[in-house]
């Protein structure tokens, strides 16, 4: 059965308390973020239904939001998701080469996950790090001024974490 951990349930209550009474739907985006972290990095339909039930809204209200925003994954992703920016300013600083390099190095295409389930490569649009290009988001933080060497180091670091 899908159920938030106790700590997350407390967090959900805290979030709902930020809004006026009856406006608990406003908690939807933050709660989906929590759910994605807690339930394996993506939002399966039963997870979305669960979120609907705790916010007392219809499941469709959750689906339409989850499918609108690019940060919610609607299918499984690898343990580490490389989200590489490819918009104008990053392109001017060689993001195409970085994306190509990651593809070769991990032997996957954009949107794919390595067979061992370790890495997913995604391209994303402007993440607000244009002065520190090329860059990618990895989990909670940004990795900036990327070079091939830095990409190597990041991949090693992710692998080391798994061992």
């Amino acid at each position: 059965m899908i159920q938030f951990k106790e700590a997350s349930l407390i967090k959900v209550k805290e979030i709902i308390a930020r809004y006026p009474p009856e406006k608990q739907k406003s908690a939807l985006l933050p709660v989906l973020h929590l759910a994605q972290v807690e339930f394996g990095g993506w939002l399966d339909v039963p997870v979305m239904d669960y979120v609907a039930s705790i916010l007392n809204i219809e499941p469709i209200e959750v689906y339409e939001v989850a499918s609108f925003y690019s940060m919610y994954n609607l299918k499984p992703v690898g343990k580490h998701v490389f989200e590489v920016c490819q918009t104008g300013p990053c392109m001017l600083n060689g993001s195409d080469n970085i994306i190509e390099y990651i593809k070769q190095k991990l032997n996957i295409g954009v949107g794919e996950t390595t067979i061992d389930g370790m890495f997913t490569l995604k391209t994303v649009e402007c993440l607000g790090a244009c002065g520190y290009a090329p860059m990618m988001q990895l989990g909670k933080i940004y990795r900036e001024h990327l070079t091939k060497e830095k990409v190597d180091a990041i991949i090693d670091e992710c692998r080391a974490k798994a061992n």
Partner: peptide, 12 residues
């Protein structure tokens, strides 16, 4: 006065 932070989820 109360102040809260709400995160979006990726939408320009």
């Amino acid at each position: 006065c109360e102040m809260y932070v709400q995160r979006g989820a990726g939408a320009y």
